[in-house]
Amino acid sequence: MTLTRRHLITTTLALTALSGCGAVSALNQATTPLDAFELRAPRDLPQAGRMLARSLSVEPPTTSGALDTDRILIKPNAVQSLYLPGVRWSEDAPQMVQTLVLRAFEDTGALSYVGRRPLGGSGDFALISEITDFQAELGPDGDSVATRMRVTARMVRESDAHVLARRSFSATAPAASNSALDIVESFNVVSDRLITDLVRWGLDSIGLRLPAA
């Protein structure tokens, strides 16, 4: 599936102009299954040289309404938000990012426990984050596409709710084409870069530095 600015705008106009029989047709189309895509966790994070007997809970990221969905967001310009037709993420974007971050921390072997909630009702550290960008963007020519991801993270000590460190992470990458598959692969590139940086920073903020890649 390829996308152009005209295709996206036509899709939007069609959705906003529904009435009568058109609305019934749209409801019927809404039951058509969408192709689902998922992102992979970073594959090149090194193993930690030692394991800390500490636990980390990775909280679900917060985000805006446009991103709090399983639809893949694309912006044809700075003020307009649309969704790629016919495709979706395998789960809502914040939950998917939470899963990727959790797996990345686990894969380093740096901590004795990493989960979505504290072990036994209390834990050592919590990662709190907000997703501010997670979208594809059309270039000025209307055909080229790039993806963008930006996350602000805080590492919090659970015992006294003290913020140990705060940092914003961002990454962008061009898509090889404007097909849905190439756009998703571009999302894989940016999420890999961003989550790798986030995990290194997170472990460093609690006293464990990963070896250089």
Rank of each mutant, 00 (worst) to 15 (best):
S112G: 15
Y113W: 15
A104N: 02
A104F: 01
Q95V: 09
S112E: 14
F105H: 06
G123H: 03
M96W: 03
V97N: 03
F105P: 02
E106R: 14
F105Q: 01
D124Y: 03
T99M: 09
D107Y: 01
R103H: 09
R103N: 06
G120D: 06
L111Y: 09
L102K: 15
P118A: 08
D124W: 08
S122Y: 14
A104C: 04
V101W: 00
A104K: 02
F125Y: 15
V114Q: 05
R103C: 00
A104S: 14
G120A: 04
F105W: 04
Q95P: 00
G115R: 13
A110Q: 05
R117G: 02
P118H: 06
G121A: 08
T99Y: 05
G121W: 07
L119C: 00
D124S: 11
S122E: 14
L119D: 06
Q95A: 14
S112T: 14
T108E: 11
G109K: 08
A110W: 12
A110C: 09
R116Q: 12
Q95T: 13
G109M: 04
S112H: 07
S122W: 07
S112L: 11
L100G: 04
D107I: 00
F105C: 00
V101N: 02
G115K: 14
G121M: 12
T108R: 10
G115H: 11
M96T: 03
Q95S: 14
D107C: 00
G120S: 05
Y113R: 06
V114M: 12
A110S: 11
T99R: 15
R116D: 10
G120L: 09
A110G: 11
L111C: 10
D124M: 08
R117W: 11
G109C: 07
S122I: 12
Q98F: 03
F125E: 04
G121E: 11
Q98N: 04
T108K: 04
R116W: 07
Q98I: 04
D124P: 05
G115V: 11
L100C: 03
V114C: 12
Y113F: 15
G109L: 05
P118G: 08
A104P: 04
L102Q: 15
R116I: 05
R103W: 03
V97C: 00
V114I: 11
F125S: 01
D124F: 05
A104H: 01
Q98R: 15
G123S: 05
T99H: 12
V101S: 02
D107H: 02
R117V: 10
L100I: 15
R117C: 00
R103G: 03
G115T: 09
L100Q: 05
L100Y: 04
L119Y: 10
D124N: 15
T108H: 10
T99A: 15
V97D: 01
G123R: 07
R117N: 01
R117F: 12
M96L: 15
G115S: 13
G109S: 09
G115A: 15
T108G: 06
D107R: 13
Q95W: 03
E106L: 09
R116P: 01
V97I: 15
R117P: 00
E106M: 11
E106P: 00
G120I: 07
R103K: 09
F105K: 01
M96C: 06
V101H: 01
Q95C: 00
D124C: 04
L111W: 12
T108N: 08
V97R: 02
V114K: 08
V97L: 14
R116Y: 10
F125T: 09
R116K: 11
